[in-house]
């Protein structure tokens, strides 16, 4: 068992649920309200140093009594330690947790995928849209257990809706525009932009 679990429990008390070991990996359950604090603590405490978020996903079990779990895979690159953090949600209730994008930017698309497939909404996510299915997809969340394998609509309706989707609508203009990232660009790239090599300068310049 990873000693982080005991350290977490000492810090957050009852917000930390059971911890267990599975195939050599440690799993710890965290209450939804304490997730963001616990994740911040795990990342910023020097003895823990979980600086890398490997994956965010969710699991819904066939047993309807069991809660839906949002799973975070954490890794400390320096300590070579892994930790799996889980948050339990009621599949018939409010499916929302705090977004960890402020802590790890890499969580952006991972959380979008979890939202797309399971309908978990991440509070505070900067751009929570579908990522695999097209944006006008209206049949629901495909990886939920109550979702029929072949989809909710008839095949003809699915074909009709798919053909009506605009293939270029998958990227917002903001996503394609370099103007948004201008302030974070390195100096030489800013200089190239200033010379008009490529792209358009933001109006503020």
């Amino acid at each position: 068992m990873n000693p982080t679990v005991d350290a977490l429990r000492a810090t957050f008390g009852s917000a930390i649920g059971r911890g267990l070991e599975s195939c050599g990996d440690t799993i710890v359950y965290v209450a939804r309200e304490a997730l963001l604090d616990a994740m911040t603590w795990l990342r910023d405490t020097p003895q823990q140093g979980y600086d890398y978020l490997v994956d965010v996903t969710a699991v819904e079990y066939r047993d309807r009594e069991r809660p839906l779990e949002v799973v975070y895979f954490l890794r400390s690159l320096a300590r070579r330690a892994d930790l799996r953090v889980k948050v339990e949600l009621d599949p018939r209730g409010d499916l929302s947790v705090d977004s960890v994008v402020p802590l790890w930017h890499g969580a952006d698309w991972l959380e979008r995928e979890t939202y797309d497939m399971f309908g978990v909404s991440f509070r505070g996510h900067p751009d929570l849209r579908r990522i695999l299915m097209w944006e006008t997809y209206a049949e629901g969340y495909p990886l939920r257990k109550d979702f029929p394998l072949r989809g909710r609509f008839s095949r003809a309706e699915q074909v009709r809706q798919a053909l009506g989707a605009n293939p270029e609508a998958h990227y917002s203009m903001e996503e394609l525009s370099i103007a948004e990232a201008y302030d974070e660009l390195p100096a030489d790239m800013k200089e190239r932009l200033r010379r008009g090599e490529r792209g358009k300068l933001p109006d503020s310049e």
Partner: peptide, 19 residues
């Protein structure tokens, strides 16, 4: 058949898409 680009009648699509 319609402005979305459906080329077969819906009944026919359902029929040929049967499992």
């Amino acid at each position: 058949l319609d402005e979305r680009g459906l080329r077969l009648p819906p009944e026919q699509i359902d029929e040929i898409s049967e499992p």
